[in-house]
């Protein structure tokens, strides 16, 4: 069976700086895949390459069995993206924006209008049809960006920090929608710093640091890996994703545990 997403030796350089180095990913269809890493690790660069916004320096990307470089249009028609900066058009209303996106993906006008109404209703944005997007709150803009990303019924959804700056109610709506998509067989590739949400939603996790993939697997596999590597582990203690993340990143950076205890003692 074809992987939903697979990369081989994916690398991106900006001058002398290597943002992503030799990343090999394998995301199975139907997986809720969390892609984690500290700031500047290369998450957004990777997601930009996987969605065709940035060309890799070297390596290849296969999406739904198609080579991205050779079949960019076919691939883009089957994926949805919520980019880091949302990329909304502030001078449109929500329904105008959804109509624009739907028609850019090739939907006919009637289908676009019907889906727009359903999505706006689902996202609790139906009462804001006259308001321009620029006047929306950040959470409302996130919900709209997600609605636009799914209007064409994508098989794979890429989300770059979808929960950043979103209140609990909006986050609840987003989670509900994403879980519904997974239940219908879609694949979701998500980057987030909110590890509690990732732990609750994602079935598989990959951790990237300094451009290199340093851990990949289900949460149980990552947990087992951390326990095996730890000298004084307690098998009965169930590590949270946050603890796993800190240990994995800390090990690579040569820092075990938070540094804050040793430093900034003057803070009192």
């Amino acid at each position: 069976m074809n992987a939903a997403i697979s990369t081989t030796g994916l690398t991106r350089r900006f001058g002398d700086f290597v943002a992503v180095q030799n990343v090999n990913l394998h995301v199975a269809p139907g997986q809720f895949y969390g892609f984690l890493g500290p700031n500047g690790a290369g998450k957004s660069t990777t997601i930009k390459m996987l969605t065709g916004l940035l060309a890799p320096t070297s390596g290849s990307i296969q999406v739904l069995g198609l080579d991205f470089a050779a079949h960019a249009i076919e691939v883009k028609r089957q994926i949805g993206v919520v980019p880091e900066g949302l990329a909304l058009f502030g001078r449109l209303t929500a329904s105008e924006y959804l109509r624009f996106v739907g028609q850019m993906y090739g939907l006919d006008r009637a289908t676009t209008l019907q889906r727009s109404e359903e999505l706006l209703e689902f996202m609790n944005l139906a009462g804001e049809t006259k308001k321009l997007i620029t006047d929306f709150s950040h959470g409302m803009q996130k919900k709209l960006a997600l609605a636009a990303a799914v209007i064409h019924g994508p098989k794979i959804l890429f989300l770059d920090e979808p929960f950043e700056g979103v209140d609990a109610i909006a986050a609840g709506t987003l989670k509900q929608m994403l879980q519904g998509m997974i239940a219908r067989g879609a694949t979701i590739f998500l980057t987030s710093h909110v590890l509690e949400i990732v732990e609750r939603l994602c079935s598989h996790i990959a951790i990237i640091n300094r451009g290199e993939l340093i851990a990949e697997g289900s949460i149980e596999e990552l947990r087992a890996g951390v326990h095996t590597q730890s000298d004084s582990h307690d098998p009965s203690a169930l590590l949270t994703l946050e603890e796993i993340f800190i240990r994995v990143i800390g090990k690579q950076d040569g820092v075990e545990g938070p540094q804050a205890e040793q430093e900034l003692s003057w803070l009192g």
Binding site: M104, Y105, G106, T111, A186
Partner: peptide
């Protein structure tokens, strides 16, 4: 929410899709 996660219904030919995209961008402007 019937359309979410479903197959892509739009099956336009590349030239028809291009024409629709040009019209949509003109409408956007």
């Amino acid at each position: 929410m019937a359309g979410i996660g479903a197959q892509i219904e739009a099956d336009l030919s590349p030239s028809a899709l291009s024409a629709q995209q040009f019209r949509t961008i003109a409408w956007l402007r």
